[in-house]
């Protein structure tokens, strides 16, 4: 586990919470990771800085913020990049630049996050998957490859299960197909989180910088606690029915268990190809 200065303080006072925070994704926390000496890009580079097109889509009663990097009119399959909890599309800049050179890349600020603003009610992976598909549709994209990190990884799985004809390949980075894919201690730590524990952290600072509802960070904390305490599970049969190819990526000290990631990959490998419906 990489130690971050704010987490070192938390770890002494709230060891469970420290573990949970260390496992939750934050763009700004990532910015705290020491950059290699030969790094060419500042760690705080943002995805929208090079965006060709930014805007929002009116979907499912929300104004979901998005950014498009590259030319959607190109013949390359677009890549949709989904961020993790307490992050934003901007936070996924490290995963935009390498891909945008060869295909259009779309980032979204999930409901409750970034420029999309205050979360209304509970978060769910199904709902966020439907949001993402609606944004793609609003951009005229019939099918996209999807790369999701952490919460975004679980959302990507939900997309492929619920909207298989809209998803090409999927890349699941440190994401789970079920709540029990997480290490129990991580979930226990998340359950102890309070908004006050984030005071002054880059996570809170970034939220306030981006959000149209900067005072609503406590609502986001509550929503993340709720989704991480709410059982969900995509079955092996559902994973095997996903028509697109899947890549699963995990750290060997991740919050998602190796057994879970391996099982997800095995299900994807056992998937039987079936014709896709034509998407109009």
């Amino acid at each position: 586990m990489i130690a971050f200065p704010p987490l070192q303080i938390f770890r002494r006072r709230h060891p469970g919470v420290a573990a949970a925070l260390a496992l939750l994704a934050s763009a700004a926390v990532v910015a705290a990771v020491p950059e290699p000496a030969n790094a060419q890009q500042p760690a705080t580079a943002t995805a929208s800085a090079s965006a060709a097109k930014t805007g929002y889509a009116e979907v499912n009663g929300l104004r979901l913020d998005y950014a498009v990097h590259g030319d959607l009119a190109s013949k390359q399959t677009p890549l949709l990049v989904l961020h993790g909890a307490f992050m934003s599309g901007e936070a996924m800049a490290p995963f935009v630049t390498p891909f945008a050179a060869s295909r259009p890349v779309i980032t979204i600020d999930a409901r409750g996050h970034g420029r999309t603003g205050k979360v209304r009610g509970a978060l769910s992976y199904d709902q966020m998957a439907d949001d993402a598909v609606a944004v793609l549709a609003s951009l005229g994209i019939k099918r996209a490859d999807v790369l999701g990190y952490s919460m975004g990884g679980s959302t990507a799985i939900a997309m492929a299960v619920r909207h298989p004809d809209r998803v090409g390949k999927q890349v699941i980075i440190s994401g789970a197909a079920s709540l029990d894919g997480w290490i129990p201690e991580v979930l226990a730590g998340i359950a102890q989180m309070t908004p006050e524990m984030f005071a002054g952290t880059p996570m809170e600072t970034e939220y306030k910088r981006l959000s149209p509802t900067p005072d609503a960070f406590p609502d986001l904390v509550a929503a993340i606690k709720h989704i991480d305490a709410t059982p969900f599970a995509f079955s092996d049969a559902q994973l095997r029915a996903i028509p697109g190819r899947t890549m699963v990526i995990l750290g060997d000290a991740d919050g998602v268990t190796f057994d879970h990631a391996s099982s997800c990959s095995s299900c994807a490998a056992a998937a039987t190809s079936r014709p896709r419906r034509r998407v109009s």
Partner: peptide, 27 residues
């Protein structure tokens, strides 16, 4: 049909610092 990659000495958040390595595998 499927690929599985395990990054060494990498935590959940540490994964975000491995974007170049991950991109080289994902592309």
């Amino acid at each position: 049909k499927a690929r599985l990659s395990i990054l060494p000495a990498t935590s959940h958040i540490g994964v975000m610092a491995e974007a170049p390595t991950i991109a080289a595998q994902v592309i």
